[in-house]
Write a protein that binds this DNA or RNA. Structure first.
Lengths: 81, 81
DNA sequence: GCGGATTTGTACGTATGTATG
DNA sequence: GCATACATACGTACAAATCCG
């Protein structure tokens, strides 16, 4: 799904892709994100690129990372009121 | 000045070192930080490590980075009132 | 409690792209 | 054209903490 030829950096594309899954509730609050090595293999990216993407999500407050544990969804999809 | 044997990560040590220079006014508002490659040579670190340190400073709001231009001090030392 | 697997953290090196001067 | 400087992306290695059988 990520495209090496696009002008958008790969880590940004991956971050957007994961952010979308969180926003849509496909990954919900408290759930672990796929591990870095999984995402690496899944998308054919280097680990550093995956880590850059996760850092973006962390900065957006969408996930929190517990060292040696994993990265977890910290975002709760806004429900209609 | 950075110590590979210390428990503190090298990029953190470098960030603290540069932050100290900014806080003390040795690097003042608007001045460019030494370039990544300079810091790399100066401290005997890898480029990625230097970049990680600069990222910390950016996150603290101490510097701003203008791509392809350089990184500049964005912090104005608090003057006694 | 032990050992191995997993997962994130740190650090290195290298290559290429892009913008500036 | 050339040098400088940051951005992206790859790969590798090892450390440290956690988890699970």
């Amino acid at each position: 799904v990520v495209n090496p030829l696009a002008p958008t950096p790969l880590y940004q594309q991956l971050a957007d892709l994961l952010a979308g899954q969180i926003e849509r509730g496909e990954l919900s609050l408290g759930q672990p994100l796929p591990s870095e090595s999984y995402l690496q293999g899944e998308h054919g990216l280097a680990r550093g690129t995956v880590r850059a993407a996760v850092r973006v999500l962390r900065e957006r407050g969408l996930v929190i990372t517990a060292p040696q544990r994993g990265t977890y969804v910290a975002y709760h999809k806004r429900e209609p009121e």
